[in-house]
């Protein structure tokens, strides 16, 4: 995030960090106790699903707090139109965790924008652990920035008509160089509607991070909300590991087996 400030714990309780091979690579958001919403391009290039970890309840990447939880990934569902009509179009992914998130005041789900959502007069914020300068400086502290929405037609004018598709929306602050940057991908753009926070965008792409005329482009969540709900409601929960034999029961069986072995030798 360029032009942002450190976020306080519990302010963005739906924020997730997607780690690959032990390093933060993307953001995400909690949408259900088993599901994280993120960007498809965070999971492409034949990445090994076993090397992904998801963290929630985190504000400092280097310090786990009292509410920090860590998860392995069970499956990743990439939108079928990802890269089909645009190199980074359909940039949305649902990540199913192996175990359930425990909600608390620091870990909560965000609402998904409904298909008919009208975007006007909104206070919207982007959050992430991406670069904080165009030179690639980073911060371990979660950054937040308020971003004005940019009319879709204006964004088409800035980027070119074929670059901005209906499944995208744009936001950024031209005057103060406030925007999202590398490492923020997959993170949420959220707006407050009558004291309820709704996710309207997923950080997706842009022409660099700090060219004033090129705002950040987000995957438009309302365009994908039916797809999101369909998969959350219809995907089976991950298989849970069978409980291990209790130590007491295990000890009894062990004694019995030993006794039988001794008896058989007599």
């Amino acid at each position: 995030i360029l032009g942002g400030v450190d976020a306080l714990e519990t302010k963005w309780p739906w924020q997730a960090s997607v780690h690959y091979a032990g390093f933060h690579i993307c953001g995400g958001s909690i949408v259900d106790e088993y599901w994280i919403l993120s960007a498809a391009h965070c999971f492409d290039r034949n990445k090994n699903i076993k090397a992904f970890d998801i963290y929630v309840g985190l504000v400092d990447l280097k310090v786990a707090g009292n509410h920090t939880q860590w998860f392995e990934v069970n499956r990743v569902i990439i939108h079928p139109t990802y890269g089909l009509y645009h190199p980074i179009g359909g940039d949305i992914a649902l990540v199913q965790l192996k175990t359930r998130i425990v909600f608390s005041d620091s870990v909560l789900p965000i609402c998904i924008a409904p298909p008919d959502l009208t975007l006007s007069n909104l206070s919207c914020w982007a959050t992430g652990w991406g670069y904080i300068s165009r030179q690639g400086d980073t911060s371990n502290k979660l950054q937040e920035v308020r971003l004005p929405l940019i009319p879709w037609q204006l964004c088409q004018l800035l980027y070119g008509q074929t670059d901005i598709l209906p499944d995208m929306l744009c936001a950024g602050n031209f005057r103060n160089m406030k925007t999202a940057c590398e490492g923020d991908s997959g993170g949420p753009l959220v707006c407050e509607f009558d004291r309820t926070w709704v996710q309207i965008g997923i950080v997706s792409w842009g022409q660099g991070c700090a060219y004033p005329m090129y705002p950040t482009v987000f995957a438009r969540v309302s365009f994908f909300s039916k797809w999101i709900h369909h998969h959350i409601e219809n995907t089976p929960l991950p298989l849970q590991p069978l409980p291990a034999l209790s130590s007491t029961l295990g000890a009894i069986i062990s004694v019995l087996m030993t006794s039988l072995a001794v008896l058989s030798m007599l």
């Binding site: 519990t10 302010k11 309780p13 739906w14 949408v31 106790e33 009292n66 425990v102 909600f103 608390s104 005041d105 620091s106 909560l108 789900p109 965000i110 609402c111 998904i112 959220v190 004291r195 309820t196 926070w197 709704v198």
Partner: peptide
Amino acid sequence: TAHRHPASEEVAFSRDVACGQRHVQGK
């Protein structure tokens, strides 16, 4: 509940916890 907070801060969360609701702390 598993929350380790003073009783005044405790909030009950069911599996169907409401989305988009920040924890509001009373003053």
